[in-house]
């Protein structure tokens, strides 16, 4: 089944199509695509767009798991289409649908306004303290300080974690895995002094405390960011902070 690059072999696709204004709801349409063992789902979609139906709409850019724009449900699981090899889905058919838990703009294109607004809300940038380094010098950071947040900085905002999260599906206010992991990324950055500006939101009920630790966000993350771990750690930190404030009322925090 996996031998040769002949075009006589094909693999079936069930692709969700939705044209706003025309369709009442998304419907699955069947396509046959030549099977190539080195192809990923994104290659098959580009083949269809070039050769079969130019109206098929989907987002992509880098083709190498970096830009984070090609997320979709492949056989019901959130995946980067550029990292999902056809050979892992033999004999097919392969079902491709837009990322779950988001409104659908068209075909496989989702609306990501909600995520963008939440991302901005947690201030994902370095907030300098009272004594930033002079303009002609750089921040110093030890390898250990870097290791403290590096993993969380690998996020490519692909939103697979939001599609895997049943809490986000049901609680629209929930900030969600990637945003909370990114907040943790800046909280743990030794150059950042913005914790107090973020915690009001991230340590609230719409933040970490909405999470029930289903853990699927981490399972589907293509960059091993482990947002579930980030959120549980933030819960521990938030709890310790609360005890500190209660037991040590004259403390500086």
């Amino acid at each position: 089944m996996t031998s040769g690059a002949t075009t006589t072999q094909t693999i079936g696709f069930e692709i969700a199509r939705y044209l706003p204004g025309e369709d009442r709801a998304p419907t699955l349409r069947h396509y046959d695509v030549p099977y190539r063992p080195e192809w990923v789902v994104l290659d098959a979609l580009n083949y269809l767009k070039d050769e079969v139906d130019g109206t098929l709409s989907f987002r992509w850019s880098c083709r190498m798991g970096v830009c984070g724009s090609c997320g979709a449900m492949v056989n019901g699981v959130p995946r980067l289409m550029c990292a999902a090899f056809l050979r892992d889905y033999l004999p097919g058919p392969i079902r491709v649908e837009p990322l779950a838990n988001f409104p659908i703009e068209r075909d496989l294109v989702i609306v990501l306004d909600d995520f963008m607004q939440k991302l901005r809300a947690v201030k994902p940038w370095i907030i300098p303290g009272d004594r930033p380094p002079p303009a002609d010098a750089e921040y110093r950071q030890t390898p250990a300080q870097l290791a403290d947040f590096k993993q969380y900085s690998m996020c490519i905002n692909c939103l697979l974690c939001y599609s895997a999260c049943p809490v986000y599906q049901h609680e629209e206010e929930f900030l969600g895995p990637a945003v909370l992991a990114l907040a943790q990324r800046y909280d743990h950055d030794s150059r950042d002094r913005g914790n107090s500006q973020r915690h009001e939101l991230t340590w609230s009920d719409e933040g970490i405390w909405d999470c029930t630790f289903v853990g699927e966000c981490s399972a589907v993350c293509p960059k091993h960011v482990d947002p579930a771990g980030a959120i549980q750690q933030a819960k521990v930190e938030s709890t310790m902070d609360w005890y500190r404030s209660v037991l040590w009322p004259f403390g500086r925090r």
Partner: peptide, 11 residues
């Protein structure tokens, strides 16, 4: 290890 990860230096 998810909630309380430990690090020894960088490791």
């Amino acid at each position: 290890p998810k909630g309380l990860p430990l690090r020894r230096g960088e490791e």
